[in-house]
Computed example of a mutant assay.
Amino acid sequence: MDNVWKDIARKIHKLHQQKEILPLHEPSFIGNEKAYVMDCIEAGWVSSVGKYVDRFEEKLAEYTGVERAIAVMNGTAALHVALKLVGVKPADEVLVPSLTFVATANAVTYCGAEPHFVDVSRETLGMDPYKLDAHLQEISFMKGQNCVNKVTGNIIRAVVPMHTFGHSVDMDPLIDVCSRYNITVVEDAAESLGSFYKGKHTGNFGKVAALSFNGNKIITTGGGGAILTNDYDLADYAKHITTTAKLPHAWDYVHDDIGYNYRMPNINAALGCAQLEQIDEYLHQKRILTKKYEQIFREYPGIKLFKENNDSHSNYWLQAILLDQERYDFSKVLKELHEEKIMARPIWKPLHLLQPFADCQKSDLSITIQLQKEIINLPSSPYLGGDNSGQA
Rank of each mutant, 00 (worst) to 15 (best):
177 V>D: 01
82 A>E: 06
86 V>I: 13
170 D>E: 12
117 F>P: 09
143 K>S: 09
190 A>T: 11
164 T>M: 13
158 A>I: 06
199 G>K: 13
80 H>Y: 15
85 L>S: 03
142 M>K: 12
103 A>E: 04
125 L>G: 02
117 F>H: 06
115 P>W: 10
164 T>V: 13
157 R>N: 00
120 V>E: 04
194 G>R: 14
169 V>H: 05
96 V>K: 01
184 T>M: 04
109 T>N: 03
91 A>E: 10
122 R>G: 02
100 T>H: 02
171 M>H: 13
119 D>K: 15
107 A>V: 10
151 V>I: 09
117 F>G: 00
82 A>P: 08
87 G>D: 05
166 G>S: 03
150 K>E: 00
139 I>A: 00
133 D>V: 08
187 E>S: 14
149 N>R: 13
162 M>P: 02
191 E>I: 12
129 P>H: 08
92 D>P: 08
107 A>I: 11
142 M>C: 05
165 F>L: 14
163 H>C: 03
164 T>E: 00
176 D>W: 06
98 S>W: 10
188 D>C: 08
167 H>S: 03
111 C>Q: 06
93 E>S: 00
132 L>G: 05
141 F>P: 03
128 D>F: 14
106 N>R: 12
171 M>V: 14
192 S>C: 13
136 L>C: 10
130 Y>D: 02
141 F>K: 14
115 P>G: 12
178 C>E: 04
167 H>K: 11
175 I>T: 06
108 V>E: 02
180 R>P: 05
96 V>R: 04
110 Y>T: 07
189 A>W: 12
168 S>R: 12
152 T>I: 10
168 S>H: 09
97 P>I: 09
138 E>P: 02
105 A>W: 13
158 A>G: 00
162 M>A: 13
122 R>H: 09
198 K>L: 14
151 V>N: 01
166 G>I: 15
130 Y>F: 14
146 N>G: 03
128 D>V: 11
193 L>Y: 08
174 L>N: 00
152 T>A: 00
131 K>T: 11
117 F>D: 03
107 A>M: 11
188 D>T: 12
180 R>M: 09
190 A>D: 03
96 V>Q: 00
144 G>W: 10
89 K>S: 09
119 D>H: 11
104 T>L: 12
182 N>G: 06
116 H>I: 15
90 P>I: 14
86 V>K: 15
136 L>F: 15
148 V>Q: 02
173 P>N: 11
111 C>K: 01
173 P>I: 11
165 F>R: 04
139 I>F: 07
149 N>Q: 09
113 A>S: 03
166 G>Q: 01
91 A>S: 04
